[in-house]
């Protein structure tokens, strides 16, 4: 039962990792941009949540109503005002600009909020759990997070494959020049993609803040988890990203049980093993 418990915990943590990863996967799929600042933006969202929760006295989940639109707007502005100018055949500019951005965000947060650990008050939800079977209980909050991940991915999947905007996203991803001939403004499409990416990041950041303590330095670690989930799942596959998050979560929890203190390492090692044997991930896209 202990082990089943661990696996279930791992799966639920995987939901949070999938939320970390979805935005990264989306913008890579649409504009081949890898955002090194992605993890720091997650932490930025946690701190935004903190400011709103303490400033307005709102419950963190209610604060999402403000954090998500704010991050959406930030994403649009960031892409339109900065990152669009880095896109091109050379991979260095986007990489180095987002790397610089990562350092800027980290240190700005450090300057404003200090290096102290913070937490978003989750209240009774923090400890609430439900009994699934004899000896198997799961936390209500992790289940909510996991369900959110599923809903977000399903929603994005619908957006991408069932709407005109989604077709425009895919067309721009395939061939930006020809997409422009169709009347698609790719700068706007890229900005919307980043906006959606950061809206998901907002969700991930607030959930992260409710689940564990956070401080300005933890961004890069979240980027790495997101990156691993994306690669394990297969580039460009959103459902794959969820599976990637789950694999990572389960590996960490099982690894931590087997070798105390080595949970992160276990996650990385499983990632590397998958990279060696399935370099295109578990669910590679047919075309890329």
């Amino acid at each position: 039962m202990d082990w089943i418990n661990a696996v279930v915990q791992g799966i639920l943590v995987g939901g949070l990792y999938a939320l970390f990863a979805t935005g990264l996967s989306l913008i890579f799929g649409i504009m081949r941009l890898v955002n090194i600042a992605h993890g720091d933006l997650i932490v930025l969202a946690s701190f935004l949540g903190l400011v709103i929760v303490t400033g307005l006295g709102l419950y963190p989940l209610v604060a999402l109503l403000i954090v998500v639109p704010l991050m959406f707007a930030l994403g649009y502005a960031l892409q339109r005002g900065l990152l669009n100018f880095t896109l091109g055949s050379d991979i260095l500019p986007p990489l180095l600009v987002t790397f610089g951005l990562s350092i800027i965000i980290q240190n700005a947060l450090l300057e404003i909020f200090s290096a102290d650990s913070q937490k978003l008050p989750a209240g009774p939800l923090q400890t609430a759990s439900m009994q699934i079977a004899e000896g198997l209980a799961v936390g209500v909050f992790p289940v909510i997070v996991f369900a959110c991940a599923v809903v977000v991915i399903a929603g994005l999947q619908l957006l991408l494959y069932r709407t005109a905007l989604g077709a425009a996203f895919r067309a721009t991803s395939d061939d930006p020049d020809t997409a422009r001939l169709m009347g698609i403004d790719n700068r706007h499409i890229f900005a919307l993609a980043m906006a959606i990416s950061l809206a998901v990041v907002a969700l991930a950041g607030v959930f992260l803040g409710m689940r564990t303590a956070f401080d300005p330095s933890i961004g890069p670690g979240r980027l790495i988890y997101a990156f691993e989930a994306v690669i394990i799942g297969g580039l460009g596959s959103l459902w794959g990203t969820l599976v990637g998050g789950i694999v990572l979560g389960v590996s960490q929890i099982i690894g931590g049980k087997l070798f105390p203190g080595a949970d992160q390492l276990a996650g990385h090692v499983v990632f590397l093993i998958i990279l060696v044997f399935r370099p295109r991930g578990l669910f590679p896209r047919a075309m890329d």
């Binding site: 890898v34 090194i36 991979i91 990489l95 790495i224 690669i231 070798f259 390492l265 990385h268 590397l272």
Partner: peptide
């Protein structure tokens, strides 16, 4: 390992490897 990744993903891959070494020495 990292040469299996292209472009920017190569970059993050090298970072993961460095993390693996760091965490390993910490053990």
């Amino acid at each position: 390992i990292v040469f299996r990744l292209r472009g920017a993903y190569f970059a993050i891959g090298t970072w993961v490897m460095a993390e693996v070494y760091r965490l390993s020495f910490a053990q």
